[in-house]
């Protein structure tokens, strides 16, 4: 059959005089704004500068993990080891600091660990040929074991230098240092994805791997790079997380996997529906941050929060799946 039989572009359809593609692109943002307004009107301590800065602080690590996963999703690779990579950096860096390693060296050590994790994942996926979903599930399990063995399951605290703690707890002109990190990471990630040849090729590999290959793109290199970015961003978040908590917790990173994936999924419902984008992920993190914060302030049970969050992710993914193919494997 000829291409002429394919259906028309959706933008010719309209609901209440609004173009359908616009509705699709911005409906999640409208929901986000509505949620913000409702919490502002109904929850006492929600709309205060202190609480808004709190939200920024709370979502900063999540945004950084999500930004890394965005690279993975853009290249159609899934990284399920990010949660344990967050945990590993959050143990490794405090351990080094406590044993007297200077802060810059410890941070470089953390980044090197991220590179090593990412390179391992990349090797398994692009050279050995294991699908990323399975490869990273396995490496995640291995990291989990290492995290608990190396700490005996106990938290690492005491004796962390002030300069390190400042990264996670300090403020500049009243604004949390973490928020600056978040903005910087989002800005860099956005620029790389939207304004560089590297980002364009990551999207090409995810958009149509065969076409990218026949256009002369070294597909394997960009799939590998996307997985490495996932791990490196995860260890950055892990180092900041331990600084914020003031201790290294072997299980602190776990929730960043599911929440991180959720930020990307929610982000994929907006802007360029079906495609992971850095700004979409940022709004996804904001979405989750506002829900968590608002429900916390109301005093809702954490388990109910988890149910609400799960339902929201399902709705978001349902919206995307209805309009575009969501091929993740």
């Amino acid at each position: 059959m000829s291409d002429a039989t394919s259906p028309t572009a959706p933008q010719h359809d309209a609901v209440l005089g609004i173009r359908k593609d616009l509705i699709q692109r911005y409906s999640t943002l409208v929901v986000l704004a509505l949620m913000f307004v409702i919490f502002s009107l109904t929850v006492d301590r929600f709309l205060t500068s202190q609480n808004l800065l709190n939200i920024a602080q709370q979502i900063s690590m999540l945004t950084i993990v999500g930004a890394g996963l965005t690279f993975g999703f853009a290249a159609r690779e899934m990284d399920l080891s990010v949660g344990y990579a967050v945990g590993m950096a959050g143990i490794l860096v405090p351990l080094m600091l406590i044993s007297g390693v200077p802060l810059p060296v410890a941070i470089l050590g953390g980044l090197a660990a991220g590179l090593a994790i990412g390179a391992t994942n990349a090797l398994l996926v692009t050279v050995v040929g294991i699908p990323s979903l399975i490869a990273t599930l396995a490496t995640g399990s291995i990291l989990f074991g290492i995290n608990f063995l190396s700490t005996g399951g106990r938290a690492i605290y005491g004796g962390l230098p002030d300069a390190y703690l400042w990264l996670g707890q300090g403020r500049i002109a009243g604004i949390p240092v973490l928020a600056f990190f978040m903005v910087a990471v989002v800005a860099v990630a956005w620029f790389v994805m939207e304004r560089t040849v590297f980002g364009r090729y990551i999207y090409a590999v995810g958009g149509n791997q065969k076409a990218a290959e026949l256009s002369g793109v070294t597909v394997r290199r960009y799939r590998a790079a996307a997985l490495i970015v996932c791990s490196v961003f995860a260890v950055i978040a892990g180092m900041l997380l331990a600084a914020r908590l003031g201790s290294g917790q072997p299980n602190a990173g776990e929730r960043y996997l599911l929440d991180g994936l959720a930020t990307v999924f929610i982000g994929m419902t907006m802007l360029r529906p079906g495609t992971a984008t850095v700004l979409g992920t940022f709004f996804g993190a904001l979405f989750i941050g506002i829900i968590n914060n608002g429900l916390n302030l109301i005093g809702m049970d954490t388990y109910i929060q988890s149910i609400v969050k799960g339902a929201i992710i399902l709705i978001a993914v349902a919206i995307v799946s209805r309009s575009t193919k969501l091929n993740l494997l």
Binding site: D3, Y203, A204, G207, N208, K210, A211, L214, S215, R272, G274, T275, T324
Partner: peptide, 9 residues
């Protein structure tokens, strides 16, 4: 559409 182009781009 399979070998040369990216429909969403």
């Amino acid at each position: 559409m399979e070998y040369a182009l990216i429909g969403d781009w």
